[in-house]
Design a protein around this nucleic acid. Structure first.
Lengths: 169, 169
DNA sequence: GCAATGTGCTTCGGATTCGAAGCAACTGGA
DNA sequence: TCCAGTTGCTTCGAATCCGAAGCACATTGC
C-alpha cells in the first residue's frame, strides 16, 4: 500500500534524516579510527572483515562487490591497494579463467586483529551507548527488513546490462 | 554502562551491518534519482533542501556545514558548483566581513521542486514500504537518540582546533 | 568447431571528498 | 591602539569513488 503522497510526514522525515545522519557520523568516526589504527579505509576494512569471515579466507571479486555495496571498479582499486600492501593475494580461479579469487593473508589477519578492538570500542561508545539492549534488537530487526527489501528491489540501474540487440540504427 | 567487550554479540553486529548497508543502499538509490531528475549530487540536494527550509532561504556557510555532515572544504566546493549553476547566491555578510551568506535562488527552488516528488517516491518504495507506521516511529526515535549522542560526543578530531598556546618550545 | 552472446574484471576519465595549510577579519587584553 | 589568539572560509594536493567502455574468457546454438 505505497500511496506515494507528494510529501513526507514529520515522522518519516525524522526517520530518514536520523538514518542518514547517524550513519554518516558513525562512518566518519569509524573511518578515522581505522585510518589511525591500521591505515585502512572503510571499504578496505569491510573487505578484510568479509574475507576473514569466510571459512576459506577467500572470495571471488564479484561476491565481494555484492557483499559490500561498492562498484566493481572501486573494488578493483581497493583490492589492488590491499594487494600492494600484502594484506590479500589475488589469484585467477582454476574453473573460470577470468574470475579472480581474493584471499586474506596472515598479515591481513594481523592488521584486522590490530584495528578490531578499537573498532568495537568506537561502536560501543558512539552507537550503542545511548541505546538499550531492546533498542538494539529492534534496530537490527527494522533495518534488517529494510535492507533485505532494498537488496531485492533493483537497486542500481533497473536493468543491469541488457542490450537486447539494439534494433539497428 | 559501556563495558566495551572485545567483540560484539550477534545482535549488535546485526544492527551495525544493517545500519551501514541500509543507509548505503538507500543513498545510492537516492543519488541516482537526484542525478537523473535534476543533475544534483546528494550533498547539493541536502544543501538546497536545508536552504529551502530556512525562513529566509539563506544560511551561513558554517551553519550549513554543521547541518550536513561534510567538511568545510567540501562545502566550499559544492557551494561554488551550485553558484555556477545559479541555484544559490553567496554574499558576504554585513556583520562579519569574513562570513558568507548562502541563499537559494528561484531557480534553485525550481530544481528542488523538480526532484522532490521522485525523491519522496524512492523513499516510500525503498525505505518505508516494508515498514509499518510504528516501525518508522521507533526508527526515528532510536536513531534520533543515537544521532544526538554522536553529535555531542567529539565527532571529528577530539579537539577541533585547540592549540592552547602550545607551551612554547 | 565457430559465431554470437553473456560474464568477470580492469582501465579510463571525471567528479567528489577530506585534512592541512593559508589568508583575512574579529576579539579581548594591555 | 597594537598584539596574540580565534574564527570563517578558501586553496591545495592526494585519495577515493563511480559509470562507461573495453578486454578476455565462457557458454550456447548451430
Amino acid at each position: 500500500m505505497t500511496s506515494s503522497p507528494s510529501s513526507l510526514d514529520a515522522t518519516q522525515l525524522g526517520a530518514y534524516f536520523a538514518l542518514i545522519e547517524a550513519s554518516s557520523l558513525l562512518k566518519h568516526a569509524v573511518e578515522q579510527q581505522l585510518r589511525e589504527a591500521g591505515d585502512l579505509s572503510y571499504v578496505q576494512f569491510q573487505l578484510l572483515a568479509t574475507l576473514g569471515d569466510s571459512p576459506t579466507g577467500s572470495r571471488r571479486m564479484t561476491d565481494l562487490a555484492d557483499g559490500v555495496v561498492y562498484s566493481r571498479s572501486g573494488l578493483t582499486y581497493q583490492a589492488q591497494t590491499l594487494e600492494k600492501r600484502g594484506l590479500v593475494t589475488r589469484t585467477p580461479s582454476s574453473d573460470d579463467e577470468r574470475s579472480i579469487t581474493v584471499t586474506i593473508t596472515e598479515e591481513g589477519r594481523a592488521v584486522l586483529a590490530g584495528v578490531f578492538p578499537g573498532h568495537v570500542t568506537i561502536l560501543g561508545d558512539l552507537l550503542f551507548a545511548p541505546l538499550s539492549r531492546s533498542d538494539i534488537e529492534t534496530l537490527a530487526d527494522i533495518l534488517g527488513r529494510a535492507r533485505d527489501h532494498m537488496r531485492q528491489t533493483p537497486p542500481r540501474s533497473a536493468e543491469p546490462r541488457r542490450r537486447r540487440k539494439a534494433a539497428g540504427s
